[in-house]
Design a protein around this nucleic acid. Structure first.
Lengths: 124, 124
DNA sequence: TATAGCACTATACTTTTGTATAGCAAGCAT
DNA sequence: ATGCTTGCTATACAAAAGTATAGTGCTATA
């Protein structure tokens, strides 16, 4: 039933350019920019603290990490968990939605690899 | 055989962070920005001329359309065909690679719709 | 002759995105 | 007391992406 419903919605969305564009832009927005994918990759290995993510991504500045984490949280990709120990302890965790992205990323990886081959054949 | 090879490459890429990141960034690069998706959508209905695409996307300036078409051509997404009639006649067509993107876009649409529902449940 | 369409290019500007550098409040270790 | 770590914020700046507006060379049509 849920599955059927989802398929119908999918077909509906494909028929309706507005919903179509909205849904695709939602997906693009959580992936684009220089740091979102590295941050999600870091969190894909488990719950992490601010400085741990920073150490995983050596070139990111705290400003960017803070900004991106806020945006990811706002978009339901990351949960921010604050423990009021002293000093304050903050942990970041991927949401289920974020984990579901792996299907999209796999399809992107698949296309990217195939496209690279096509390009190489035509150029070299 | 080709299928088997492709699967092996896919597994290899997932194991190798460098190739992984390159392939995914290739995919992101042909999709991001304000106009690439609209342009590809327009061309998905068939071969088009410059002004026809412009009419399909009313808010795009000729500067942006020209710039994006060049980039899409460079990235093997679009074929530019020049007929030397007078005045010159130019047509734009999607490549096979670009058509293959529909699998990626479908997965993005699917995730986007599901994510929207999740967000709405949690907020409203 | 004037006007309009085609396929763009040129110049200047604004907005968005990302970088560089410094600092802060709290607490623990020496 | 001094420096170190944690989890950030503030300010200023540079680079990339996108907008606005005008104009070019060509030709067909009124």
């Amino acid at each position: 039933m849920t599955a059927t419903k989802r398929i119908v919605d999918f077909a509906e969305a494909k028929a309706c350019p507005e919903q179509f564009v909205l849904a695709i832009n939602d997906t693009l927005n959580v992936l684009t920019g220089k740091w979102k994918l590295p941050i999600l990759a870091s969190l894909s290995y488990g719950i992490k603290r601010f400085t741990e993510i920073q150490r995983n991504i050596p070139k990111i500045t705290p400003r960017m990490l803070s900004k991106e984490l806020k945006e990811l949280e706002l978009n339901g990709m990351v949960k921010r968990i604050v423990y009021d120990a002293t000093p304050v302890l903050v942990e970041y965790e991927m949401t289920e939605s974020a984990k579901d992205l792996s299907a999209v990323i796999d399809s992107m990886l698949h296309w990217g690899l195939k496209h690279r081959k096509t390009i190489m054949q035509n150029e070299c």
